[in-house]
């Protein structure tokens, strides 16, 4: 413990490095977690609309319904006749009744509203389902307004890959930095270590305090990084998001298992850094 206090500067630098990398990796993961949540909530209400050609008899409509219901990944198929659609439109546009007064023929086609089964992050299937429905001859047009979700999902996917690569880079840099800091401490204590060896101290006896030191560095660094991330998250939540409608975006902090992983990862960074420098030094 005295070693820990004596080497204040080295301790500070090591803990600061681990904290910073924990904070950065944590921030990336926080973004991913929240982006996934937002995407999941947005994709929950995705509907595929299949508009039919005019004048299809009811028997054929039933056949199409059966065909659509048999599709994998479809939870519910609702038939909306042109008349029903017009009534709905009228009720939604009560202030513009004059538009409808001049209508002599209902311009709205019969349609099917398909409710896909909710599978977060699986956006490609909307497109596949839409393409399949398009192949039915009586279907004139297929639409799913959330096409842009797929694009966002792809951007998030790309971002995730970047995040994982950058996290690996940050962790690697931290390990390198910690290992070098410990090496500096070891060099400053090399006479002491040499004397310990000469009086019969085993490598394990010599190594143990350094490992304890490094695990403490990792633990404190991880804890400080997570605490800083939590404070920043709360500040962001209260200041930036306070002006936005509550139901538009809701953010949440890292789930406990990810927070624990970051903490555990920080401890591991300390341990690996120590392992590498001791291995080289005591060789």
């Amino acid at each position: 413990m005295r070693t820990f206090i004596e080497k204040g500067f080295f301790n500070f630098i090591t803990i600061a490095t681990i904290s910073l990398s924990g904070l950065t990796v944590g921030a990336f993961l926080l973004f991913i977690v929240n982006a996934d949540m937002v995407m999941a909530s947005w994709t929950k209400d995705v509907r595929i609309m299949a508009y039919l050609e005019p004048d299809i008899d009811s028997q054929r409509i039933d056949q199409i319904r059966t065909q659509l219901q048999a599709l994998e990944g479809i939870d519910l198929v609702v038939f909306i006749s042109g008349d029903t659609a017009l009534e709905q439109l009228k009720s939604e546009m009560k202030r513009h009744q004059s538009i409808f007064d001049n209508l002599k023929v209902n311009p709205l086609p019969d349609s099917f509203e398909l409710h896909p089964v909710h599978v977060p992050e699986h956006f490609g299937r909307f497109e596949r389902l839409a393409r399949f429905v398009e192949q039915i001859p009586e279907v004139s047009e297929v639409e799913y307004g959330e096409k842009w979700l797929g694009r966002i999902a792809n951007i998030i996917k790309l971002f995730k890959i970047t995040v994982y690569a950058m996290s690996a880079l940050f962790i690697g840099a931290s390990v390198f930095f910690v290992a070098n800091t410990i090496r500096l401490v070891l060099y400053s204590k090399r006479d002491e270590v040499e004397i310990m060896k000469l009086v019969g101290a085993s490598d394990r006896y010599i190594k143990t305090p350094f490992y304890i030191n490094s695990l403490l560095h990792g633990g404190i660094g991880g804890g400080v990084g997570l605490a800083a991330l939590y404070i920043l998250f709360r500040l962001l939540e209260t200041s930036v998001l306070s002006g936005l409608p509550a139901n538009l975006v809701s953010l949440s902090f890292l789930p406990p298992e990810i927070a624990c992983s970051i903490f555990g990862g920080s401890v591991m960074v300390g341990w690996i850094g120590c392992f590498l420098s001791l291995k080289r030094f005591l060789k």
Binding site: E192, K197, L198
Partner: peptide, 24 residues
């Protein structure tokens, strides 16, 4: 290599320059 500490424990060594750890 691992037996070296055991060998050294057979000895009590008084070094010419004492080799005491100054920080202890």
């Amino acid at each position: 290599h691992r037996a070296i500490p055991l060998l050294r424990r057979k000895f009590g060594i008084i070094f010419q320059d004492f080799k005491l750890i100054p920080s202890k």
